[in-house]
Design a protein around this nucleic acid. Sequence first.
RNA 1: GGCCCCGUCGUCUAGCGGCCUAGGAUACGUGGUUCUCAGCCACGAGAUCGCGGGUUCGAAUCCCGCCGGGGCUACCA
Length: 486
Amino acid sequence: MAPAPTGRFHIGNARTALYDWLLARHHGGTFILRIEDTDRARSSLDHVAEILEAFRWLGLNYDEGPEVGGDCGPYFQSERLHLYRQAASRLLDEGKAYYCYCTPDELDQRRREIQSKGLAPRYNRQCRGLSPADRERLEAEGRPKAIRFAAPDHGAVAWQDLIRGAIEFQCSELDDFVLTKADGFPTYLLACVVDDAAMAISHVVRGEDLISSTPRQILIYRALDLPAPRFAHLPLILGPDRAKLSKRHGPVAVLDYRDQGFLPDAIVNFIALLGWSPGDDRERLSRDELIQSFSLDGIGKSAAVFDIEKLSWMNGIYLRDLPPDQYLSRARPFLESALGQLPAEFDDQYVARALLLEQERARTLAELPQLTEFFFRQPESYDEKGERKWFGREGAADLLAGVRAALDALPAFDEPAIEAAVRGVADQVGVKPGPVIHTTRLAVTGRTKGPGLFELIAVLGKQRVSTRLAQAEQHIRSLRSRTPQP
RNA sequence: GGCCCCGUCGUCUAGCGGCCUAGGAUACGUGGUUCUCAGCCACGAGAUCGCGGGUUCGAAUCCCGCCGGGGCUACCA
């Protein structure tokens, strides 16, 4: 996998990385990470760090690459410039490449003119047949120069794509593309070929958007007399509008999903299925199952829309299956970053119990602060519909007072005792348990939904529950005095 | 515009000539379970397999054309 550190590490890149990883792991091959930092203007160290962090977070361990080293290093293209220079000068010597003195401005202007005539923009090979005298003159001017590949003008380039089958391009469609930029850095066309050959890469698995660069790379392999790897072009990942997924569709960086409370295992499982299928009805696959079932044959040809709804569903499954300690260590940071430093009265034990009660209800970790907020803050208001339904009832305040008295009187404040007490009140008053439970939940949490009442009360503890019940009673009474019943 | 790729429920997909009156998942709807929600279980609705020709006893599956969508078209990758 060879990402460029020119932007956030995209979910599409993550899927490519995953497929690369799965392919290597399935066949017992070597998974190499190489950083393609040949764009000096746009590459940054921050982006490199983000790539490494994304790999770490997703659990895609590489056998060779930055920080781990290996026999094929270095793993930053900016540290391998001598190799590209060597290759370029060889092509130059053999007449398969030439210096181009055209400036970006000139190129740009010509391109515009051609396009305005509705023609295919292509380099006009102006510098290909430069006479020695012209060349000398341009050199004397001190013009910066790029190196271009002298592309053949007839014939065809074809390859057997591992996903799409035979693909063929006519050479007449290809122009004299740039191998080395004026700043001395290679374009990825050159760098990729040189490195893939040097690193003995067997499979190039990448997005469909790179299909059209493949014939050019094959031409370079040929010119350098190097064996070409096998190519597999993946279908693209689309946004809801069916255009290539990009930032305008919302967050697309892997680490954004981490920050939104998705689990790496869920992301891995989900993106594995975006374009690939094990061939049967399984949807939930562990990493080991993924490795075992993975095959290029299972990859489809058509683009897939990234459906965040389905991701959320899957994340919920993984969240519920997390063992308590793992769940807690992942959940806590989300709680703290949203609710701030928790007061000392909420010890680890309390936080853990609160969090555990919402584990089965959350779809992402980021929902947890909102879901558990009432454990840490007294309700300031009550759910509007619930208020009308439960607090508006005749005798609601007295009912709560009864519950409060019963709970206050409990010697042991555990779940069975609480349940018995609450149901006892219902018996006494002669109503069904339902209304008592709902009214009490609303009074204690301010909400109409949430964990089971008895377990939630047990976590909150006698003191808090008592206070909240009293507060609700007062609220109801003040409501009634302001809006007298007819 | 040119070149290239793609086209099965809204979405992700199974399907590689008969097992398909097209299966699963999600989302949606209904019912059940329960103190609510979530979950779980059951059921339902949802695809004339983009369209039109062919090949074949038989096509979602093979071939051709059309239409539609997407990608590329940089001294970015």
